[in-house]
């Protein structure tokens, strides 16, 4: 991710900024300008609360480029309390056998990527269990 792109997407990564349609009340993540449900452009930017539940998860043992040194890690689909789904790394897992679908999670702030030792550090949200497991 380039510096400009990183800066443009900051609000979604830092604060879980998304959109709420003021006509049909649908939520979107990340920010969008047209509601795909009712086609309205009457949307406002909101910050999601950052709490939700685990829908699905997997353990990654062969990491993507830049993540090969942190394997194994967990990747998950999260449903936020507002209803939208997003994907995020699942962190703060002490015992993998205790990960359960539907368990409450919240978003925490972590480093996402560090392309080079001298480049920009990308920060953003990751999910963690609300109750330590």
């Amino acid at each position: 991710m380039g510096v400009a792109q990183s800066w443009r997407t900051q609000s979604s990564r830092y604060r879980l900024a998304g959109s709420k349609c003021n006509e049909c009340k649908n939520y979107y993540f990340p920010v969008t300008v047209v509601c795909s449900n009712c086609e309205s452009d009457n949307l406002e930017v909101i910050n999601f609360k950052g709490t939700g539940k685990l829908v699905e998860w997997t353990r990654v043992d062969e990491g993507a480029s830049g993540f090969d040194h942190v394997v194994p890690y967990y990747f998950a689909i999260i449903q936020l309390d507002e209803g939208v789904r997003l994907s995020a790394q699942l962190v703060s897992v002490m015992d993998e056998s205790k990960i359960t679908d539907g368990m409450p999670v919240r978003m925490t702030f972590r480093k996402l990527m560090e392309s080079t030792r001298e480049g920009i550090i990308e920060y953003g949200f990751k999910a963690e269990p609300v109750n330590p497991i």
Partner: peptide, 9 residues
């Protein structure tokens, strides 16, 4: 710290 934690996080 975890590998993705630093002073900012």
């Amino acid at each position: 710290p975890d590998m993705d934690e630093d002073t900012a996080t």
